[in-house]
Design a protein around this nucleic acid. Structure first.
Lengths: 219, 219
DNA sequence: TAGTGGTCTAGACCACTGG
DNA sequence: CAGTGGTCTAGACCACTAA
């Protein structure tokens, strides 16, 4: 009760443990039963279950009960977690005007823009290359360092993000880095990050190595 | 009160109207205020707001209030609505064994599979081509016609869907149909549709015309 | 200090399903 | 018929923030 975490999140954690040892498609106890087991109100249990349903761990049947999802459904991707965690290295960074990029960031063309290029590596393979563009002024005043940019890119739910998937041939400057043949078709994802009020924070282009990485989304 | 729709959905609709005429980043009334305005409990108003926040129409600040999202955020895509509505024509359909496809559908290789090919057209342009594979038996017994397949593909939330994004050069057999040059890089999305219990229902390959259609996802 | 959203309670009635 | 999830109420206390 005096924990810092909300009750429903503690219950969610306990349910998650319980579920992990259950067979798919078996029913969990009824909401009223769980409420009395955990000694909380039904609405609190329900909120915990709501989130597990949203995350695909459980599914409900209106009149029969709540059930454990099939095993292969446990892996849960959404747009926010498209980018899995791996080792990230900054390749280089510069600051100048970018006429093509400025309009996208709602900036005047003469304004300086910061460009940072990352590579994402796993097991000596470059999985993808990231180009991030952000307003120079914004970067200085409110971000201040590359770690902050990384935290924005990896943040969950703090920003509004729009991803556009663009097919292309691998850009020649990335052939050696990605270690793939010339003219290989790849997917580049162009992402716009906005604050909740709509202000554009940064633009990102991610070049995926089709031989080493896949883009996968589940509901 | 005697409507068939739940109260919170009616309130959601009314809030949506109210919001649509408001400037971005202006506050909506407090939850307690709305509750008394609508003459319902705060939890009911809250449920309506919860959904609008999930859908990106509103955003909350823990201590300041709830606000209207920026205009450009109103457009809301998610994985389930990736496929926008356009005119769909069935190009052809056949039923035979598909050795490469059967394992994906968890079927024995000798089992017959139904393959249906659609084109999606808007303004005389072919936006994409869809290949759908489903178990012949399943198709007969539980689906029964092509409209049912379409409804599965366009359904929201009734199935678990996994999308994999694959870059490739346009298959030669689709060059004329999509009206794009040979060797054009395109994106093919391979989607697996499952029931909530994990059973695989169908597999789908969607070939996007990069000149006429874009794949875009927002959170 | 007054107002906000976040959480929580202990009830309630409904429609629907399965035995 | 008993049990389920879906909805709803009328309160409550909390932490935080802006005035």
């Amino acid at each position: 009760m005096s924990m810092s975490k909300p009750l429903y999140q503690q219950i969610k954690t306990q349910l998650l443990q319980k579920i992990s040892s259950m067979q798919p498609n078996t029913a969990i106890p009824a909401e009223r039963t769980l409420a009395s087991e955990f000694n909380v109100s039904r609405m609190t249990v329900r909120k915990a279950i709501d989130e597990l349903v949203d995350e695909g761990m459980l599914y409900r049947d209106k009149t029969r009960g709540t059930f454990v999802s099939g095993r292969e459904l446990v892996k849960k991707n959404n747009v926010a977690t498209l980018i899995k965690e791996d080792t990230t290295h900054v390749l280089y960074m510069n600051r100048r005007t970018f006429e093509e990029i400025a309009p996208i960031l709602n900036l005047p063309v003469y304004e300086e823009i910061v460009r940072i290029v990352f590579e994402c590596v796993r097991d000596h393979d470059v999985l993808r290359i990231d180009e991030v563009y952000t307003a120079s002024s914004y970067y200085c005043e409110e971000i201040g360092n590359i770690e902050k940019v990384l935290s924005i890119i990896n943040s969950q739910g703090s920003y509004r993000i729009t991803h556009t998937f663009i097919p292309m041939l691998v850009p020649v400057q990335f052939i050696n880095l990605l270690n793939i043949p010339m003219n290989t078709p790849i997917i580049m994802v162009r992402s716009i990050y906005r604050e909740m009020n709509g202000k554009i924070i940064l633009m990102r282009k991610t070049y995926y190595n089709p031989l080493k990485d896949t883009i996968e989304i589940s509901n």
